[in-house]
């Protein structure tokens, strides 16, 4: 049963992501990626990481995909970017090499067989609860740092998507900047 689920979702995920990478239509790519993200969460459920699965769905399919969707509205997606492909040989060889090496890296500690669990899963406790216990005891400081980072990112996103950011002060001439200031003060006076 587990095997069937694994292979099914594996095939689906790979297919979805491949489509994301290959498709020339941004909208299709976005949709297929959102689907792929949901498929990934299935693996988390299979691995008894229920909490992570839920977070995956909410954050990726909910928040991140919504961000991409909004971002896409700014761009002229109909005017597709011309994708002149680079040499496929380079791409292929590099991918294969990287893949092999990543496998090696991951299996290396297993081959060494000297790993023991730093924070074993508490017995008789459900996964979300166990995650909560570990997160708020052992990983409290990283957790708080991550929270601050998210806050910073949020403010950054708001500021950068705001007005006036389409002008670069560093690339403007002195007179232009002076004119801009003048306009602003005039606006304030009229208000």
């Amino acid at each position: 049963m587990e095997a069937i689920a694994f292979y099914l979702f594996a095939v689906l995920t790979v297919a979805m992501f491949s489509y994301t990478v290959m498709s020339s239509q941004a909208l299709y790519a976005l949709s297929s990626m959102a689907a792929g993200m949901i498929m990934i969460s299935a693996f988390f459920f299979l691995l008894n990481a229920d909490f992570l699965g839920v977070v995956q769905i909410i954050v990726y399919t909910g928040a991140v995909m919504a961000l991409y969707a909004f971002g896409m509205m700014f761009f002229d997606t109909t005017r597709a970017v011309k994708e002149h492909n680079t040499s496929k040989v380079i791409v292929l060889t590099l991918s294969v090499l990287a893949t092999l090496l990543v496998i090696t890296i991951f299996t290396m500690p297993i081959a060494a067989e000297n790993i023991s669990a730093a924070f074993p899963e508490p017995a008789g406790v459900e996964n979300p609860k166990a995650v909560g216990i570990v997160l708020f005891t052992k990983y409290l400081v990283p957790f708080e740092v991550a929270a601050v980072m998210l806050l910073v990112a949020m403010i950054a996103g708001i500021v950068m998507a705001g007005k006036k950011m389409d002008r670069s002060l560093t690339k403007m001439k002195e007179e232009e900047i002076a004119m801009m200031h003048q306009e602003e003060t005039q606006k304030k006076v009229t208000l």
Binding site: A49, F51, L52, V55, Q56, V59, Y60, A63, V64, L67, Y68, F70, G71, F74, A117, A118, F119, P120, E121, A130, V131, V134, L135, K138, Y139, P142, A146, M149, L150, V152, A153, M154, A156, G157, I158, V159, M160, A161, M165
Partner: peptide
């Protein structure tokens, strides 16, 4: 049988979310 892996994945998701927020802002 270790929760550290999940913890790392959790933080990676947080970083990914921040990255998208800032990255898309810059892109715009």
């Amino acid at each position: 049988g270790d929760l550290t892996g999940q913890m790392f994945a959790f933080f990676v998701i947080a970083i990914a979310a921040s990255e998208v927020a800032v990255g898309l802002g810059l892109l715009i």
